[in-house]
Amino acid sequence: MRVFPVYAPKLIVKHARIFLTGVIWVKDLGRLEFEKGRFLLPRKSLPKVKQAILELNELIEAQN
């Protein structure tokens, strides 16, 4: 598990694309899981977490 002390979308996306499957922890967002290079949306999450995951997945799609 990698810990990101700040929310840096480009760096987080780079990590997810390299490792494809895993878990990261982002300060103020908490634990985020990714599989096959995409972030998974938890069943229950705060609106800011949901927005961050959608933003990260959009960045991943834009890079493909």
Rank of each mutant, 00 (worst) to 15 (best):
Q63Y: 09
L32M: 14
T21G: 07
S45L: 10
P5F: 15
M1D: 15
L29Q: 00
N64M: 11
V6N: 05
L54F: 11
L59E: 09
S45D: 05
K36Q: 13
D28E: 09
L20K: 07
E58D: 09
E33G: 10
L32V: 06
V13P: 00
G37D: 03
L20Y: 12
K50Y: 08
E61F: 09
K27L: 14
L29A: 01
D28P: 14
G30Q: 02
W25M: 09
V26P: 00
K50Q: 07
K44T: 08
L56F: 03
V49I: 14
Q63W: 13
F4E: 01
V13I: 09
Y7R: 01
E33F: 15
S45V: 13
E58G: 12
R2F: 15
V26I: 08
T21M: 10
L41Y: 10
L41F: 10
L41M: 11
T21S: 14
P47W: 10
K48Y: 07
N57C: 03
K27T: 15
I18A: 09
E58S: 13
E58M: 10
H15R: 03
V6A: 05
V13L: 05
I60T: 05
K50C: 06
H15G: 01
I53T: 05
W25G: 03
K14D: 13
R38G: 04
V6M: 08
Q63M: 12
L59Q: 06
V13W: 03
P5S: 10
K50D: 07
R31N: 04
R43L: 08
S45F: 09
E55I: 06
M1Q: 15
V49Q: 07
L20R: 10
A8P: 01
L40R: 13
T21W: 09
F34Q: 00
Y7M: 03
N64R: 04
A8W: 12
V3W: 15
L46E: 07
K14G: 10
V13K: 02
T21H: 12
L41W: 08
I60Y: 07
R2Y: 15
M1R: 10
P42K: 13
F4D: 01
F34I: 05
V49E: 04
V3D: 07
E58T: 12
L29T: 04
L54I: 12
A16T: 11
E55L: 08
V6L: 07
E55T: 07
K44L: 07
E33I: 14
K44V: 06
K27P: 14
V49M: 13
L54Q: 06
I12K: 01
A52P: 01
V49D: 01
F34Y: 05
T21C: 12
F34G: 01
L59K: 05
R17K: 08
L40N: 07
D28W: 14
R43T: 06
G22A: 04
F39T: 02
F19G: 04
G30K: 01
Q51Y: 10
K44Y: 11
R31P: 03
F34C: 03
G37H: 03
I60S: 05
A8S: 10
V26S: 01
E61H: 09
E55R: 07
F34M: 06
I18K: 14
P9L: 03
L56T: 00
L29N: 00
R38F: 11
E58F: 10
I53V: 10
N64G: 10
R17P: 01
P9A: 07
L41H: 11
P42A: 09
S45E: 07
G22V: 03
L29H: 03
G30T: 02
V6G: 04
E35S: 11
V49T: 06
V26K: 00
L41E: 06
L32W: 01
R2G: 07
R38D: 03
L41R: 10
F19M: 10
K50F: 08
I24A: 04
W25Y: 14
T21Y: 07
G22Y: 03
E61P: 03
H15M: 04
K27M: 15
V23R: 15
P47I: 11
E61A: 12
L32F: 14
L32Y: 02
V23I: 12
K27E: 15
I60Q: 05
F39L: 02
P47N: 12
E58V: 12
I24H: 00
P9R: 04
G30Y: 03
D28L: 11
R2I: 15
N64W: 04
I60H: 04
V49R: 06
G37V: 06
P42Q: 07
L32P: 01
F4S: 00
P47E: 05
F19C: 10
A8C: 14
K44A: 07
L54A: 11
L46K: 15
I18T: 13
K50L: 07
